[in-house]
Write a protein that binds this DNA or RNA. Structure first.
Length: 594
RNA sequence: GGGCUAGUAGCUCAGCUGGAUAGAGCACCUCCCUUCUAAGGAGGCGGUCGCAGGUUCGAAUCCUGCCUGGCUCACCA
């Protein structure tokens, strides 16, 4: 459609000049696709032209319509409804553009060369004290998908994450394991490593609460009790020992982190996400400290009497922000400064995107400003892909209150639902166990991923664990199903040819389908610009919906001519390719049968 | 309190830089499997686009105020 608009832009400006002697500015040329209830493909909104024409809207539209039909070959006819000029674009235009698309390898996608700009996409970035939950799933799916979309838009992309493997939260799990674990390991317990460590994180909190109760009973205030509980002070002590590189503590830390990484790896693998580089907070917090020191020397930051280091951002309508604690230890911001600079040194990127929840909007705002003050102008090329939280009907997920939806559990549920639906429908005869398992996995994960990615990242979304995610309607399985249908057609048509032009004229449904197919390239660009997989997801749904109407209304094997039949088979194949391509941008694979 | 953000059908979501009677899915009610996979298709029901002003030929969309929810303003991450 874009191409069409570009080709009509100047003729319209010329028309206004010739007809009315006026200079119509480009931005007054306003197109939209014609509404379904009217005849036409493309509509020019003539209201903006009216004041140049000095005639009424309807007359202006008539004039322009006549001019275009006369002078532009592919404008076949037109009609005017109020101030709208509806143009019918001739079939040969659609077929010509379609033929080009049909022959294009990887239609819709651009392939980046080594000289093309490089975008870094950070996502996932978990803490190593507990397993991943639904919130992390949204993060991972978004980050992965956005990276794939940017890649398809013709840029180089590297995916990275920062692993928050350091800090008091890790020490809590470690301490609880040491005290109550009795040497339990993933091997002895049969638990996934991240879940095992998470179990002790929860255990810490339970025991800690008990201690607080005791202290309260002894007459302490709540604040005192929280501060003085022996478990907490022990954990803090453990952190200090870790920073001092105490052998035993570091060894335990390494062991437990390995358990977690093994667990994460299997979850990542199942989610289908991957990374080109991992950064570890245990490395980068030291780098951050160095840069803070430098900033202090240069007078960009300032130091209080207690030794803590701050930056004053009040002139940017922000606050004073702490960068180093009084005892010299690092805070979150410290390591983020170190990580960002290290990445720039490693990759010399043109753009960096952080996939992090919108609760950290302020943090990134501050981070980019600080980097700027340190003299890194590339901070202007950093973006925070700020996505909304996943809420439960009860509100926000809270790990301590046990209201989290565990990632592994959810994936298991999705796949087993896919299995029971598939078994009920019974369309998979002849599949062996392994193939069946693969299909169930594909459909269950497709449903989950689509459910999450179809929502605009910026908005927060609702997930109700008591209602299972749909497999009908606007869902991943619906799209997968359509692909399977097309494959079924193609199996039957294997020995028949395909054509890019029909024997007779284009059927209305064929034309509608062509129009949607032809939007794909611009949809990828739009999704890349907006960092929005939802754009791809909704587009794919439009395509599939349109295809199913075509499938229902237009006979394929029963077509009137061999050429029509071949054209429709080719068109179906093209739809199948676009489905496969678009879904892969969402990290969703599509089956040949289901 | 300051800052940011959202409020569209019973529920979950679309709606591009302002454009024609606001669209889907789920749920509910009808139809359609001797045409190719019914995880589908056709139709019905259902909306004061939070409220009130303003900008203009035209506002769900832009501006202002208000109401409601969320996030944030830590020597937490």
């Amino acid at each position: 459609m874009k191409d069409l608009e570009i080709r009509l832009l100047h003729p319209i400006i010329v028309a206004v000049k010739e007809l009315y002697g006026a200079d119509l500015p480009e931005n007054q040329v306003n197109f939209q696709s014609t509404r379904k209830e009217f005849e036409g493909d493309l509509t020019l909104v003539v209201f903006p032209v009216v004041r140049f024409a000095k005639k009424g809207p309807e007359q202006t539209a008539e004039d322009l319509g006549n001019y275009l039909v006369k002078n532009i070959e592919f404008v076949e006819k037109f009609n005017v409804v109020k101030g709208f000029l509806n143009m019918v674009i001739s079939d040969y235009y659609w077929l010509g553009t379609y033929a080009g698309a049909y022959q294009t390898e990887d239609y819709g996608r651009l392939t980046a060369g080594s000289e093309d700009p490089l975008t870094i996409v950070e996502y996932s970035s978990p803490n190593t004290n507990k397993p991943l939950h639904l919130g992390h799933i949204r993060n991972n799916l978004l980050g992965y998908s956005v990276a794939e979309i940017i890649k398809a838009s013709g840029k180089r992309v590297k995916k990275v994450q920062i692993i928050n493997d350091r800090g008091i939260h890790i020490c809590k799990s470690m301490l609880a394991w040491k005290k109550f674990g009795e040497g339990e390991t993933p091997q002895t317990s049969g638990m996934k490593g991240d879940h095992l460590v998470g179990k002790y994180y929860v255990r810490f909190d339970q025991e800690y609460k008990k201690e607080i109760e005791v202290l309260l009973a002894q007459g302490k205030t709540e604040e005192e009790a929280k501060k003085e509980a022996p478990l907490l002070t022990e954990a803090q002590n453990m952190l200090r020992m870790w920073e001092a590189k105490d052998k035993e503590v570091v060894a335990l830390w390494e062991t437990m982190n390995q358990w977690v990484y093994a667990g994460f790896d299997s979850t990542y693998k199942r989610l289908g996400v991957d990374f080109d580089a991992n950064y570890y907070e245990s490395d980068t917090y030291l780098l951050g400290k160095q840069y803070v020191d430098t900033g202090l020397e240069k007078g960009i930051f300032y130091q209080k009497e207690d030794g803590s280091v701050w930056v004053d951002l009040t002139d940017e309508k922000l606050d004073h922000k702490l960068l180093l604690r009084g005892d010299g230890t690092a805070v979150y911001m410290t390591q983020d400064i170190g990580t960002a600079i290290q990445r720039y040194l490693d990759f010399d990127f043109n753009k960096m995107v952080y996939t992090v929840g919108n609760e950290q909007d302020y943090h990134f705002n501050v981070l980019f400003k600080i980097l700027n003050r340190l003299g890194y102008s590339w901070a202007n090329d950093c973006r925070h892909l700020s996505y909304g939280m996943v809420d439960l009907p009860s509100g926000k997920m809270k790990s301590r209150e046990g209201t989290v939806v565990d990632a592994d559990d959810l994936m298991n549920e999705m796949v087993s639902t896919a299995q029971s639906i598939s078994e009920e429908l019974g369309k998979l005869e002849g599949f062996n166990e392994e193939e069946l398992a693969a299909i169930y996995e594909m459909i269950g994960m497709g449903a989950l991923k689509y459910f999450i990615l179809k929502v605009d990242p910026k908005k927060r979304m609702m997930f109700d664990p008591s209602e299972s995610i749909d497999f009908n309607g606007h869902t991943g399985p619906f799209i997968q199903y359509t692909h399977a249908r097309i494959c079924s057609l193609q199996r039957r048509a294997a020995d028949l040819g395909t054509e890019v032009k029909p024997g007779s004229t284009l059927h209305a449904k064929e034309k509608e389908l062509l129009k949607v197919i032809l939007r794909y390239p611009e949809v990828i660009q739009e999704a890349a610009n907006d960092y929005s997989p939802a754009v791809i997801a909704n587009y794919t749904y439009d395509l599939v919906k349109e295809y199913n109407q075509f499938y229902q209304q237009v006979p394929i094997f029963g077509a009137d001519s061999e050429q029509d039949k071949a054209f429709r088979i080719g068109l179906s194949g093209m739809v199948g390719k676009v489905i496969t391509s678009a879904m892969s941008l969402l990290g969703i694979t599509v089956p040949e049968r289901m």
